[in-house]
Simulated scan of single mutants.
Amino acid sequence: MAENRNEVLVIRVARSGGVAGISRTGILELHAQHPVHEQEASWLRIARDALDELRSLEEAKAPSLVRDAFTWSLSIDGEDHCVPDTLLTGPARTLAEHVIALPRRP
């Protein structure tokens, strides 16, 4: 994850439209080394846990058996993961749902 003192950790999330065809996207930027407030520090911890979880999913990835289900694409600090909705759990789901719920930037 971002190592430079002033570096920003960028988290990008996209959820495919599923059966309804409505896609959602979001971006969250966090100060990697010096979080501005405790809430930001909490999201950094969740992002680290999410990365661990996503890496383990990549190793044991099985195809989704659910037709027309959502597919999640997560990029955390430039590391990309694509996960079917049925496999997105724990910190990765918490982070993904938070990011797509954020107000969109102009």
Results as ranks from 00 to 15, higher is better:
105 R>K: 07
92 A>N: 02
66 V>T: 08
60 A>P: 00
22 I>G: 09
52 D>I: 11
86 T>C: 11
87 L>V: 01
47 A>Y: 03
68 D>P: 00
2 A>F: 12
100 I>H: 06
31 H>R: 13
71 T>E: 10
48 R>K: 09
16 S>A: 10
23 S>Q: 11
73 S>Y: 04
58 E>I: 05
97 E>I: 02
94 T>C: 04
69 A>H: 10
69 A>R: 04
8 V>R: 15
71 T>S: 11
27 I>T: 12
89 T>V: 11
49 D>W: 01
68 D>Q: 10
10 V>N: 10
83 V>R: 02
42 S>R: 14
30 L>A: 01
16 S>D: 07
54 L>H: 04
47 A>T: 03
22 I>H: 14
69 A>V: 04
104 R>N: 03
14 A>I: 09
6 N>A: 15
14 A>Q: 11
30 L>C: 04
91 P>E: 05
9 L>C: 10
9 L>G: 01
40 E>N: 08
38 E>S: 14
103 P>F: 06
26 G>C: 09
18 G>L: 06
50 A>Q: 00
76 I>V: 08
24 R>C: 13
66 V>K: 03
3 E>L: 14
44 L>E: 06
66 V>S: 06
57 L>M: 11
82 C>K: 10
7 E>L: 12
82 C>Q: 13
95 L>R: 01
48 R>S: 06
85 D>H: 08
70 F>T: 03
20 A>W: 08
16 S>V: 04
15 R>G: 00
22 I>W: 14
97 E>A: 05
52 D>L: 13
12 R>K: 13
55 R>L: 14
36 V>L: 15
49 D>L: 04
38 E>G: 10
106 P>N: 02
57 L>N: 02
43 W>H: 00
15 R>I: 12
77 D>I: 01
89 T>A: 08
64 S>T: 07
35 P>A: 09
75 S>Q: 06
81 H>V: 05
16 S>E: 03
98 H>T: 03
24 R>L: 15
34 H>E: 12
14 A>D: 09
80 D>Y: 06
72 W>E: 05
2 A>S: 13
17 G>D: 09
33 Q>K: 11
98 H>F: 00
9 L>T: 06
41 A>W: 08
102 L>V: 02
77 D>W: 00
91 P>G: 00
77 D>A: 08
64 S>E: 01
66 V>D: 07
75 S>G: 03
61 K>R: 12
48 R>L: 11
103 P>I: 01
62 A>T: 10
22 I>L: 15
69 A>S: 14
82 C>P: 02
64 S>G: 07
62 A>L: 13
91 P>M: 06
71 T>W: 09
105 R>E: 06
83 V>I: 13
20 A>T: 14
